[in-house]
Computed example of a mutant assay.
Amino acid sequence: MKITPTAIPDVLLIEPTVFGDSRGFFFESYNQKKFVEMTGLPVAFVQDNHSRSQKHVLRGLHYQIRQPQGKLVRVISGEVFDVAVDIRRSSPTFGIWVGDYLTAENKKQMWVPHGFAHGFLVLSDVAEFLYKTTDYWAPEHERCIRWNDSALNVRWPLKGSPLVSEKDANGVLFQDAEVFP
């Protein structure tokens, strides 16, 4: 496993060691002991989520203001552009985003710690996306920042308009969002 900090060092890209031959491949998608040893993060995951979305679906930018969730995310089918936005007011990277391409082919994962808003855009015809979370979903604490807020200037690799839920279309502007201290 290879772990690479992004431009925001708390957000990590994780590349598993893949063993492949003419029959296919095998890799450990998660190993608690190795994750803790290599990251220094004493993380415990309590919930796994699985979404399937069509091309141009954009989900985000989501977070929970209470019961914040750290997320370990990956794609098992297709391709997405995955984004994390630092919403920790005391952070030197407050209001800055990082993004990377996660695909079934590259098998990369992204660690998005709590204190970040998270979203992704589907680039393939269909994508299946897995999330491991450090706390349970709490809809009463869920918040959404508008995906196209010019203050954040996320450079989504998209021509035209994405397909978004009503909740995502009505997300708040970053300047109005509840953020972490």
Rank of each mutant, 00 (worst) to 15 (best):
Pro92Lys: 02
Pro92Leu: 10
Thr93Cys: 09
Phe94Lys: 10
Phe94Arg: 13
Trp97Leu: 07
Trp97Tyr: 08
Gly99Asn: 02
Gly99His: 01
Gly99Pro: 03
Asp100His: 14
Asp100Lys: 00
Leu102Cys: 10
Leu102Met: 03
Thr103Ser: 15
Thr103Ala: 01
Glu105Pro: 00
Glu105Leu: 03
Asn106Thr: 13
Lys107Asn: 04
Lys107Ile: 10
Lys107Trp: 10
Gln109Leu: 14
Trp111Gln: 08
Val112Asn: 13
Val112Glu: 06
Val112Met: 07
Pro113Lys: 11
Pro113Tyr: 01
Pro113Val: 14
Pro113Ile: 00
His114Lys: 12
His114Ile: 00
His114Gln: 14
Gly115His: 12
Gly115Met: 07
Phe116Met: 14
His118Met: 10
Gly119Arg: 00
Phe120Ala: 09
Phe120Val: 02
Leu121Ala: 14
Val122Ile: 04
Leu123Thr: 06
Leu123Ile: 09
Ser124Val: 00
Ser124Phe: 02
Asp125His: 07
Asp125Met: 09
Asp125Ile: 06
Val126Trp: 07
Val126Gly: 02
Glu128Phe: 01
Glu128Trp: 11
Glu128Ile: 04
Phe129Leu: 15
Phe129Ala: 05
Leu130Tyr: 04
Tyr131Asn: 09
Lys132Gly: 09
Thr133Gln: 14
Thr134Gln: 07
Thr134Asn: 04
Thr134His: 05
Asp135Thr: 08
Trp137Lys: 06
Trp137Ser: 15
Ala138Met: 03
Ala138Phe: 00
Pro139Ser: 11
Pro139Asp: 13
Pro139Tyr: 02
Pro139Asn: 13
Glu140Thr: 12
Glu142His: 12
Glu142Phe: 08
Glu142Val: 11
Arg143Asn: 09
Cys144Asn: 12
Cys144Thr: 14
Trp147His: 07
Asn148Leu: 04
Asn148Ile: 07
Asn148Cys: 04
Asn148Ser: 07
Asp149Cys: 13
Asp149Gly: 12
Ser150Lys: 11
Ala151Asp: 05
Ala151Ser: 09
Asn153Phe: 08
Asn153Val: 05
Val154Lys: 07
Pro157Ala: 07
Leu158Ala: 05
Lys159Trp: 01
Lys159Met: 06
Gly160Ser: 10
Gly160Ile: 03
Ser161Gly: 06
Pro162Gly: 02
Pro162His: 08
